[in-house]
């Protein structure tokens, strides 16, 4: 969309210009909230190798949003309702074993196809403006209301607060479920809690990037950060930073061009990921130095 001659290339002036429109202020607010929540949840999702569950949840959100529009409710509520319900269904599915998703993949693959089909049906029944299916699938930052920003903010704050409480045992259960279970960590309950939080984060990310591009905010920043550092604290901080940068850049570029925001957010996140992988693989390797048999010290301290 082109509302002015183009960027001045002075970031302050450009931001002032964009933020003179309330819808752009709302877009930046919503994007910021979503980038933080999706980044943090994405870090855990990549750690747990549950990207497939995230993808499924995003597709389940699509008929929710389309159905909400059809019955005259804000799409946000549809995303949240379907993603959270979908998370509970995935959590209830029997798991093949610790970390095993072989059974799940067939069931969820089936559900994914049905979800997409239902979403398409609802959009067709609505007969609204033809653009709405694109907005649902590929994201739209126009027309984010102040109420929607508040809803996003409240859900994100609740999710982050819950994550702050369960974060450490969740990481333990994700990395080392057997030992965590032996130490009385409620591995199963944490897995359910994680899926519900992931449902909330997916519903939020869908509202910026659209159903099909949620991984731009859910996977790419976390995967980029994990390629750059193995320290959990730094990786989390870096994930959120990358998410914020690509969201702000994507929104800004979309403001000055006629192309959709989802494309830009995804492309910037992808460029970051490729750059991080390049850095990681060109870094000098320092592993050959350590020998397999290290001497055993005899002193014991306790």
């Amino acid at each position: 969309m082109i509302l002015s001659a183009g960027p001045s290339w002075n970031p302050i002036i450009d931001l002032q210009q964009m933020w003179s429109f309330p819808f752009m202020v709302n877009a930046f607010r919503a994007g910021t909230i979503v980038a933080v929540l999706a980044g943090v949840m994405g870090w855990f999702m990549v750690l747990r190798r549950q990207s497939f569950a995230g993808h499924t949840l995003s597709l389940i959100g699509f008929p929710g949003a389309a159905g909400a529009v059809l019955i005259g409710v804000a799409a946000s509520y549809g995303y949240f309702a379907f993603c959270l319900a979908g998370a509970l269904v995935i959590a209830a599915l029997p798991r093949a074993g610790p970390g095993g998703y072989s059974e799940e993949s067939a069931v969820t693959g089936t559900v994914q196809a049905l979800a997409l089909a239902c979403g398409f049906l609802f959009v067709a029944l609505y007969k609204g403006f033809l653009n709405s299916i694109n907005a649902l699938l590929f994201g739209n930052f126009l027309g984010i209301s102040a109420g929607q920003v508040t809803l996003l903010g409240v859900v994100a704050a609740l999710s982050l607060a819950a994550l702050a409480v369960i974060g450490r045992p969740l990481a333990f259960a994700s990395i080392d479920p057997e030992v965590a279970a032996a130490r009385n960590v409620p591995v199963r309950a944490l897995s359910v809690a994680f899926l519900v939080l992931l449902g909330a984060a997916t519903a939020e990310a869908s509202q910026i990037t659209g159903t099909l591009l949620v991984f731009a905010l859910l996977v790419m920043p976390a995967a980029t950060a994990q390629a750059l550092t193995a320290r959990p604290g730094r990786a989390l901080a870096l994930t959120v930073t990358i998410g914020l940068v690509v969201t702000w850049l994507g929104l800004s570029v979309a403001y000055y061009t006629p192309f959709p925001v989802g494309f830009f957010v995804t492309s910037f996140a992808f460029a970051g990921y490729v750059a991080a992988q390049a850095v990681r693989h060109t870094r000098p390797r320092w592993r050959a130095a350590s020998s397999e048999v290290s001497p055993m010290p005899t002193g014991i301290a306790r």
């Binding site: 702050a164 974060g167 450490r168 965590a180």
Partner: peptide, 10 residues
């Protein structure tokens, strides 16, 4: 994690 991974909080 073996030392305090079972504790709630971050």
């Amino acid at each position: 994690l073996g030392l305090d991974g079972h504790r709630w909080g971050l």
